[in-house]
Write a protein that binds this DNA or RNA. Sequence first.
DNA 1: CTCTCGATGCGCT
DNA 2: GCGCATCGAGAGA
Length: 196
Amino acid sequence: MQRLERFFYNRDTVTVARELLGQVLVRQLDGERIAGRIVETEAYVAKIDTACHAHRGKTARNEAMFGPPGHAYVYFIYGMHFCFNVVTEPEGKACAVLVRALEPLEGIETMRTHRPGRTDRELTNGPAKLCYALAIDRALNGVDLVGGNELWIEQEQPVGEAEISSGPRIGVRGDEWALSVPWRFWVTGNEWVSRG
DNA sequence: CTCTCGATGCGCT
DNA sequence: GCGCATCGAGAGA
């Protein structure tokens, strides 16, 4: 299957967030493919967005956001979880799309071993949950999704506009505008969309 | 099913 | 010290 190329990521962040719905996130781990269809995303636009980690400039934590598009930004949150983003727009813009939920497609048995005691619905229906299922942690922060061999995104049928819902982002802090802007996108009715 | 609340590392003020 | 782009246990309906 065709991988998404650099130009896909090097565009307006909200457009990338919408068009990532339906694409397939692939993790290559110990010779096995673990993969899921992206069904929920959020856009973060550093310059204008007080909820974006990069809004106040570059730090050690958010450094990957300032790098080239098409790389991973993985951050550690609440002292125990990881979340996975893809960097968008030209290098230095520090924009990214958070991947919030996947529909499991391949390597489901391995996902279950990474998520012991959980139902299949709970394997990947949240941003930290999908990182456990796909074994995404700080070691993958900054990796290239276009040229790397551990993590990438494959091109699939895009989700039609009529099937996409949008609303305010989940769990964010920021000014009133940042809390209300509808930059969370999900596949309407999909079983793996996070609860929020 | 829903709601509440504690866990826990670390970057930032 | 504070607070976080979250999750899951436990209690109640």
